[in-house]
Write a protein that binds this DNA or RNA. Structure first.
Length: 340
DNA sequence: AAGACAGACAACCGCGACCGG
DNA sequence: ACCGGTCGCGGTTGTCTGTCT
């Protein structure tokens, strides 16, 4: 394994940082700023590579670092954000002031480890509280290497859009685990899936989406996508109760993972779809129950074929939906409540 | 008390993106 | 357009510490 170009010097030290090194780095950065990290070690008198200095500063020495246990609010936010953006730790960290991506990543991974070692009991109650257990999707999806697949926002999604989503979502009270019926869907919530096995909508009908908005969530999404001012944001994942169906996802990352990111598991569209439906951010109680009822294999083979997906770089217009229905791959839909 | 084990945390590594020459 | 340097990110590994047996 090679090292980074800036770390090739033999004298570069590795391993834990000593208090003296920390002090040198802090002193240098507080007086000079870091500017170019590759120059920092030399100027600060450290026998470290610039990368190591950067990491140390960002993850440990930065004055605004917040240490200590994650609060329940932070925990909840991490879960929600992870359901939205997947393993984009830096992105998640940007919404948690004082927390680093590394910290969040470690926290999440240790959590996942726990979940793998102690699988959630097989009742729908596994989604009762977010602090005691993340949405059923997360551990399973991460374990399957699919945790990054669930996001209604593409990799190129506007940060502002996501921020807006988050701020709106966080205003909603958590509903998970309540015995009361799930909260009603927002009338124009754009992000839903439908199961084509039970709700076949002739693509030709899509030419006038507004006429179907209230009865077909997909059409709502379509209309919203084509009509920016009418765009409405989805509810917080936590607010989506059992039986709600849910949820939208930009699965461009499926392609991404197949295309060039060898770090992620590969799989067929069907596997990806099944993985997402089972374990993606869209997976809530109903899917878990279904998984238990069907068995993993059955779900993979049978249920996945009813999931419709398309490329997110494919323009979403009424005219190309027909082609999507038969060939597409990358967004998937499911009828709300169908699997309840 | 001592060893085994698990969890938490720190750090490293490889890769992709970006940018300037 | 190409290339090399740099930065940032995510995955992984290593180390420390607390708990259990």
């Amino acid at each position: 394994m090679g090292h980074h170009s800036c770390c090739n010097q033999q004298k570069v030290k590795r391993g834990l940082w000593s208090p003296e090194e920390d002090e040198k780095l802090i002193r240098y950065i507080t007086t000079h700023g870091y500017g170019c990290w590759s120059e920092v070690p030399e100027k600060a008198g450290l026998q470290r590579c610039g990368k190591s200095c950067r990491l140390r500063w960002i993850n440990y020495l930065r004055p605004d670092i917040r240490r200590g246990r994650f609060t329940a609010e932070e925990e909840k936010l991490i879960i929600s954000l992870h359901a939205i953006v997947g393993n984009r730790w830096a992105h998640i960290a940007s919404h948690l002031p004082g927390r680093t991506d590394n910290e969040i990543k470690n926290y999440w991974n240790s959590w996942i480890k726990k979940k793998i070692r102690k699988p959630v009991s097989t009742t729908g109650s596994s989604v009762t509280t977010t602090t005691a257990s993340p949405p059923c999707s997360t551990a399973a999806s991460d374990a399957a290497g699919l945790g990054h697949l669930q996001t209604p926002f593409s990799a190129a999604a506007d940060q502002h859009q996501l921020d807006t989503f988050i701020s709106q979502s966080l205003a909603l009270p958590p509903k998970l685990g309540q015995e009361s019926p799930p909260a009603p869907l927002p009338p124009h919530c754009p992000f839903f899936m439908f199961d084509t096995s039970v709700s076949v909508s002739p693509p030709s009908s899509l030419t006038s989406p507004s006429a179907h908005q209230l009865q077909h969530p997909f059409l709502t999404f379509t209309a919203a996508s084509m009509d920016a001012p009418a765009y409405q944001l989805p509810p917080l994942v936590d607010s989506i109760g059992i039986g709600m169906g849910m949820v939208a996802m930009d699965c461009g990352l499926v392609e991404e993972s197949r295309g060039h990111d060898h770090r992620h598991h590969e799989g067929t569209n069907g596997q990806a779809a099944a993985g997402m439906a089972n374990g993606g951010g869209c997976c809530f109680g109903q899917q878990q129950q279904e998984e238990e009822a069907l068995g993993q294999d059955q779900w993979d083979d049978e249920s996945a074929q009813h999931l419709l997906m398309w490329d997110d770089d494919q323009e979403l217009t009424a005219s190309n939906l027909e082609a999507m229905e038969s060939t597409a791959h990358s967004l998937l839909f499911m009828e709300p409540n169908d699997h309840a």
